[in-house]
Design a protein around this nucleic acid. Structure first.
Lengths: 142, 142
DNA sequence: GTTGTATATGCAACACAGTTGCGATTCCGT
DNA sequence: ACGGAATCGCAACTGTGTTGCATATACAAC
């Protein structure tokens, strides 16, 4: 509970820092994300909130807002589901590993997308580089 | 028409090579994919077939089957839409560029995913590496 | 050529992620 | 405490992809 209390305080601080309104959904969602190392899907967060259930649409909008504010990052998995993470600023530049069986996503901190030498077709303006390794995670390996 | 005729013949050859049944939907879809350099979505292919329209589900199943047979490759875009390509065997190892505005996907032939040094968490078994650069393509750059 | 049968197709209905419109609620500066 | 803009919650919708099952068909055996 101390952990969660800390995550709540941190979430509040971060939200206050944006200058926008501080609402219960925003605090709860950001705290949930700050309290874990995992990369969470919309569904994961719904399940985590449990009692403090909030509307699906509100959750989508909170997630969009957090990404907009730079408080979270959104990454795409092979299962066509967005996943979100509040940890650090590095999610734009490092790679991820996604398990083909349980769908879980892990961060590959040592794998920087910047280390990839780019040569794009003429006229293309790159914005982000996403690097995803798929396979089986330790728990799903037989 | 010569071009398309060639694609049709090639498609028939490849399908015959699998030993499975040669059906009109399979030939049409594979020919459509062979006749273009683009990476096509389900919707793209539906539009291309036009007159020879076939059932949505059949198209999904044909695409799955082509991937299963190794005659096509499936890649995931950020818009949660699968895209397919019949060109070569290299799609598993090279990167792609996706335009944030029109959704189009281009191949980055010179960018090999193999050139990325991997260091995965213990117990993880990598199967595929996907490398996608997002941004604006030449046509969508104002 | 006919026929038999495994295989593939087409239809209907469904599952799930995500979006839009809008009226009701709530945060927060005054 | 109040007022108004920002946010929430509900309902209805879009789009991609899936499942179950009856019908049609490729192709091999005759």
């Amino acid at each position: 509970m101390t952990m969660q209390g800390h995550a709540l305080d941190l979430a509040r601080d971060k939200i206050r820092g944006t200058g926008a309104r501080m609402t219960a959904p925003r605090v709860q969602v950001l705290a949930a994300m700050l309290g874990t190392q995992r990369v969470l899907s919309h569904r994961d967060i719904e399940d985590m909130l449990g009692a403090a259930r909030l509307d699906r649409v509100t959750l989508y909008r909170v997630l969009d807002w957090l990404v907009e504010q730079g408080l979270a990052h959104r990454i795409a998995g092979r299962d066509r589901v967005w996943r979100f993470s509040a940890t650090g600023e590095a999610h734009e530049t490092h790679g991820h590993f996604q398990c083909n069986r349980c769908g879980k996503i892990l961060c590959l901190d040592e794998l920087s997308a910047h280390s990839v030498p780019l040569r794009l077709p003429a006229g293309c303006r790159p914005e982000r580089t996403e690097l995803t390794v798929t396979g089986l995670c330790a728990e799903c390996t037989v």
